[in-house]
Nucleic acid binder design. Structure first.
Length: 256
DNA sequence: TGCCATGTTAAACT
DNA sequence: GAGTTTAACATGGC
């Protein structure tokens, strides 16, 4: 019997992409690891013969839950994975997991082993794509900030776990908020729009990523002109996070 | 060829 | 010690 070979040669980083990875590997839940190897900091022998009890994500992180440990995988900027075939021997194979039927190969990612349960390490309510996501908690965290620009808040994984630079750029443009506006200066309705906008765009990102149409739906990220007023976008590394931001000085407001 | 980019951490500074 | 800035890592496209 032949099983599906999915080619996933693409950037991994933001939450929606991890959501897809979780779905693509969900069938390994309950399966026993037959063989494990790679060059990551992993106790490979200790994994062999162990059952995958659950597969979870939190934002940009992917977890294989075993009885006595959690394998945490973060793809950083250049990580990738392949299912069922080790077809990228040119890349650094951090972890290979072989099951009786099928396998997963994780390349150039950061791997850690955690003890305890996920809730010991992460606030599940902060994951923008989780059923546990709680916008009221996000609002409370945002209101506690002082002198923090929204561009930084949108990259704060403790508030918006899974949000990355694409989501940041797109949400700010779509909600017409200037990246350097301070969180504390946003009117209440704008703050709510920002919080809801992150989740809405994350699920649009997911749908477009599946369709292979993500880039054609970008309105700000990597764009040259504002489609509302036709003026050129500003491009600047903003905030303490110092990440590139495209924005329209004319259409996105500072509220100061 | 050099630069840039969907990320994060740790070392090196004020 | 604090709060910063810089460097490091790693890959591919332009």
């Amino acid at each position: 019997m032949q099983w599906l070979i999915i080619c996933t040669d693409q950037h991994m980083p933001e939450g929606p992409t991890l959501y897809i990875l979780k779905e693509e590997t969900a069938h390994f839940k309950g399966k026993v690891i037959r063989h494990a190897w790679g060059n990551g900091p992993v106790d490979f022998e200790g994994l062999q013969g162990k059952k995958i009890l659950d597969i979870r994500t939190w934002g940009k992180q992917y977890f294989l839950i075993l009885k006595d440990r959690i394998i945490r995988i973060h793809f950083l900027l250049f990580g990738s994975y392949h299912l069922n075939e080790h077809i990228r021997p040119d890349r650094s194979l951090r972890l290979a997991l072989e099951f009786s039927r099928g396998s997963i190969y994780f390349y150039t990612c950061a791997i850690q082993t955690l003890e305890g349960s996920l809730v010991d390490h992460y606030d599940l309510k902060a994951d923008i794509m989780s059923k546990a996501w709680d916008p009221a908690v996000a609002k409370r965290k945002l209101k506690a900030l002082s002198d923090v620009p929204v561009c930084d808040a949108l990259l704060d994984q403790q508030i918006f776990s899974g949000s990355g630079n694409i989501i940041k750029n797109e949400v700010l443009y779509r909600t017409k908020i200037h990246p350097e506006a301070l969180v504390q200066d946003l009117p209440a309705a704008r703050l709510t729009a920002l919080i809801n906008g992150v989740v809405r765009y994350a699920f649009e990102f997911l749908q477009w990523k599946r369709e292979g149409t993500l880039a054609e739906h970008w309105e700000a990220y990597a764009q040259k002109l504002c489609h509302r007023c036709r003026l050129p976008f500003s491009k600047k590394k903003t905030g303490k996070t110092n990440r590139p931001t495209r924005f329209c000085e004319n259409c996105q407001l500072r509220y100061d």
